[in-house]
Computed example of a mutant assay.
Amino acid sequence: MPWLVVDDEDRLVEPVRRFLIDFIARDNRTGSVRSYAYDLLRWWRWLRVVDVRWDHATSAEVRDFVLWLGGATKSRRSARTDSASTTGTTNPITKKPYLDDRYKPRTIRHSNAVLRSFYDFWIERGTGPLVNPVPLARSDRRRPHAHHNPLEPFRRGEGRLRYNPKVPRRRPRQMPDQRWNELFGALRSNRDRAILALAVSNGARASELLGVRGVDLDWGDQLVRVVRKGTLAEQWLPASPEAFVWIRLYLAEGPPADPQAPLWLTLRRRDRGEGLAYQPMNYEALRAVFRRVNALLGTNWSMHDLRHTAALRMARDESLSLRDVQTILGHAHLSTTADIYLVEEESQVIRRVQDHLAELKERAKRPAPSVAGGYDDSDLAVLFGGGAA
């Protein structure tokens, strides 16, 4: 078991353990197990506070739990240092908000989904409450797919959960070319330049790029093979020639690369006192790269901003179809790609409205047209249905 939940006396929480075993058996990844375990740990602590057994919980406990999450502050192992002055504010350069210590609506919705899945597991086995304490919305108490359009893909038939908060629609964040040049110029190694050049050329996720091995590079056709995050399927993605140039420079300055080993390596000091040694680069090391660059530029860019940038560039290219963009991004449904990336660029909308307002201002300054000489006013009145203005 990669993750387990224990109580205050370091005893294993058996209902959660059995649920997570079943969750792993359904071929879920380790990161998902960690996420589910933390949500269930938070729920277990809440039940201890309200003094309710897990198998006696009702929708009232879930309702109060959601209300508490909406107003609570996350507990931290250590106090904020440099980020204390920026938490909850918006970066003036990137126009992106900094994270704060509040629970976001997406976190609450994920928690509700985990709890409903947990109680469904135990209701199927005849243990636990008779009714799932995480109820569906009243409007969704109907048979799943009762009026499904055969031309549309099937969605989850469970329906919307009653206490799910509304999630504001967020626009994808495209990095302007000038900001991209600043970010790329602030990188300190060819390894970092190669990773970011790959990300901005094909929109691959961070976890997908970090899993690339030497054998996953096709130098002739300039392709990179990645393992997709959701389906775990292998897929070849195109990459820009500049990305392969930086990969070549990175490989030339490092140790001899093993084609079967991870491509991206980082120097780390081992605990056994053996000095610095090359180790596979993980997600935390990639986050450290962005922390250094953001501190230098005064920004808060992330790896996912490069995915949005690549996707919007492809979606606005007339030579690429929306199906092409969906395939490169690895979306399961075409509607996902359309809903996220078929948006009008905000700067172009603002520019067109400004041109419209400027035209109205110029039109108001123009003198009123006068009637040319040689025309009789009564004839014009008959022609236009009124006086000549």
Rank of each mutant, 00 (worst) to 15 (best):
P2Y: 13
D8K: 15
R11C: 15
P15C: 06
V16W: 10
V16T: 13
F23H: 03
R26E: 12
V33S: 10
V33W: 09
R34P: 04
Y36H: 13
A37D: 00
D39M: 08
R42S: 12
R45P: 03
L47R: 00
D64A: 13
D64T: 08
F65N: 05
T73D: 15
T73S: 15
T73P: 10
K74W: 06
A79W: 03
R80F: 12
S85R: 14
G88F: 04
G88D: 07
T90R: 11
P92V: 05
T94N: 03
D101C: 09
K104T: 06
R106A: 11
R109Y: 02
H110W: 10
L115R: 04
D120K: 07
F121R: 00
R125F: 03
T127Q: 14
P129L: 03
N132P: 04
L136Q: 09
A137G: 11
R141W: 02
R142I: 13
P144R: 05
H145G: 02
L151V: 06
E152M: 12
P153S: 09
F154V: 09
G157T: 03
V167G: 08
V167Q: 13
V167M: 11
R171H: 07
R173S: 01
R173I: 08
D177M: 05
L183G: 00
R191K: 10
A197I: 08
V200E: 08
V200K: 09
L209T: 04
L210T: 02
L210E: 00
R213C: 13
V215E: 14
L217M: 01
G220S: 15
V226M: 06
V226A: 02
V227F: 01
K229Y: 14
T231I: 13
S240I: 08
E242K: 01
V245H: 10
L251E: 02
L265T: 10
T266Y: 04
R268N: 03
R269V: 09
R270H: 13
R270A: 14
R272V: 03
E274C: 11
L276Q: 08
N282D: 13
N282I: 02
E284C: 02
V293I: 01
L297S: 07
L297N: 02
G298S: 02
G298N: 01
T299Q: 04
S302E: 00
M303W: 13
M314R: 11
S319I: 02
G330K: 07
A332W: 07
A332M: 03
A338F: 13
V343M: 06
V343K: 09
V349Q: 08
V349D: 00
R351H: 12
R352C: 11
H356P: 12
L360E: 14
E362K: 15
V371R: 10
A372Y: 05
D376T: 04
D377C: 08
L380W: 02
G387R: 11
A389L: 14
